[in-house]
Amino acid sequence: MFLRRPVVRVCLGVIVALGLIAIFAPAIAPYDPVAQSVMAANLDPSAQHWLGTDQFGRDILSRIIFGTRASLTLGLLSPLIAAVCGSLLGIAAGYFGGLADRLIGRLTDILLAFPALLIGIMVAAALGPGFWELVSALAISFAPRFARIARASTQSVRAENYIEAAVASGLTHRRILLRHILPNIAGPIVVVLTLWVATAIRLEATLSFLGLGTQAPKPSWGNIIRDGLDNLFGSPWPIVSAGAAITLTALAFSLIGDAVRDALDPASQA
């Protein structure tokens, strides 16, 4: 039923389109995104270069198109990894209780107190630049969110009578976790996951903008803005268009996130 809402359809359309652009970037992009041309630096938009060129004479449209790859993979991958790792920790804490629970609970509380961006900056600075480093930085800053949700959900499910019965009947922990706990807490985790994709995309852009993210010459929307800021007087187009791409993508994902939340958790509907 949530697929029937026009907003959701439009957003899904946008996301599918972005996915296709990312996958078929080499076929769609009019130019090689790293090919330089000294003679064609800082051109204004024209029929040849729809968004003009940057200070190295690289085609901005092609860079934005290829940048979709970095932003989408990071935006999807890092919340996913955070969800898996965070949930495992949270489930373990909520299910087994005891010292592990206290430690993990405490740690997530502490990390949660910090804005994700700040943790991202710290981790990214410590790990240095690179794709997996960036994924780790984003995943680490998101993981506590998942851990907390998973822990709380697990605790409430754990308290249900049927779990007690299952434990009493001698089912293994693994079975209980897989059969009973996981299906019951999957909903809230998926909601958080979809909500954080948009944040991940913006965070990737921010870190790249601060010089801690995706590396040149590989384009990402964040580092296109960073490069663009150094060359603002050459051409404002990289900033304007890359920022618009980030905004559009984040908007699509957060609307989908809201819709998923409304669908899975009707109580929160406003």
Partner: peptide, 13 residues
């Protein structure tokens, strides 16, 4: 700025 095109971009403005 020691970047290509910097001088030209200033001159234009």
């Amino acid at each position: 700025a020691r970047t290509p095109g910097w001088m030209d971009s200033i001159r234009r403005r």
